[in-house]
Nucleic acid binder design. Structure first.
Length: 263
DNA sequence: ATGGTAGAGCATCTA
């Protein structure tokens, strides 16, 4: 199974690039974040023409997440299944694709440490942990992916001193990321590149940061052990961040070998 | 120089 996650920063503005990328990269599952559209604007026909079924959880101007799959989509859950009230913001979508439970997430940015939105971010990760308990078990095939808006380590940031005191790198946020790993998930990209620093998935549009390689690794694919033990490779497609009209995020892919079938 | 760009939608808000 080939699975990818991509914060597209508006699916409407990025549809042609998404279509071209699907054809070139040929993922079985593509999780999207920041679609910035309402459910009735989701381009199901255009994506269906490429062989992908899609489910979308949106609200209009902001946020919005989707799962595209050519290996089936069932058991769709919009938002949190933790028993709490509905989230005001469309940031979470869960579905079964083939044999895997796939959770796609667009975590809150946090804006500034101590800001109301920062507390919302921390609480949002608490709910995500409870959501995982409700929809999946780490002994099965589970993928939690998306723009988590956390750089797990200092080496996942271009210059940690330059953003000292900012969001994405605080101990509180990193503890929430670690909690996902403790639940039974493996950071697939880091497992493939244990010794490489400054490999990023996002670069600010401003000040030519992409070309200066000033970015962060804030998009992640976390997989349960049954998938991690069959993980073949992972990569960030930086070419998709180039050219005219890119998202500020690059797609992140993983490839998992098929489960061995006894002869 | 406390900046810069992009998207939604038409004044700002969010990132």
């Amino acid at each position: 199974m080939r699975l990818a996650t991509w914060n597209v920063n508006s699916l409407k503005a990025r549809l042609e690039r998404v279509e071209a990328w699907l054809s070139a990269a040929s993922p079985d599952v593509l999780c999207l974040q920041e679609t910035k559209m309402a459910d009735d604007a989701f381009p199901a026909l255009a994506l269906g023409a490429l062989g992908y079924e899609g489910v979308h959880h949106g609200q209009g101007r902001w946020n919005g997440v989707a799962i595209l799959s050519r290996i089936g989509i069932t058991d769709v859950v919009h938002g949190f299944a933790d028993g709490g009230p509905p989230d005001d913001e469309a940031r979470l979508l869960t579905a079964r694709c083939g044999t895997a439970v796939v959770v796609t997430a667009y975590a809150p940015n946090g804006r500034a440490v101590g800001h109301e939105q920062f507390h919302y971010k921390l609480a949002w990760f608490e709910r995500l942990a409870a959501h995982l308990d409700a929809v999946a078990d780490p002994s099965e095939e589970v993928v939690v992916c998306g723009d988590l808006n956390i750089a797990p380590e200092d080496r996942d940031v271009w210059d940690v001193e330059a953003i000292h005191g900012a969001t994405h790198i605080t101990d509180e946020e990193r503890a929430r990321f670690q909690r996902l790993l403790d639940w039974g998930l493996v950071d697939a990209f880091r497992r493939c590149y244990p010794d490489d620093d400054r490999l990023f998935t996002w670069w600010d549009y401003r000040a030519g940061n992409f070309h200066k390689h000033k970015g962060m690794r804030i998009d992640h694919v976390l997989v349960s052990e049954p998938l991690a033990e069959r993980l073949s490779w992972s990569l960030v497609d930086r070419n998709a961040r180039k050219g005219t009209g890119p998202s500020d995020h690059a797609p992140l892919l993983i490839e998992v070998e098929p489960e061995a079938v006894p002869a």
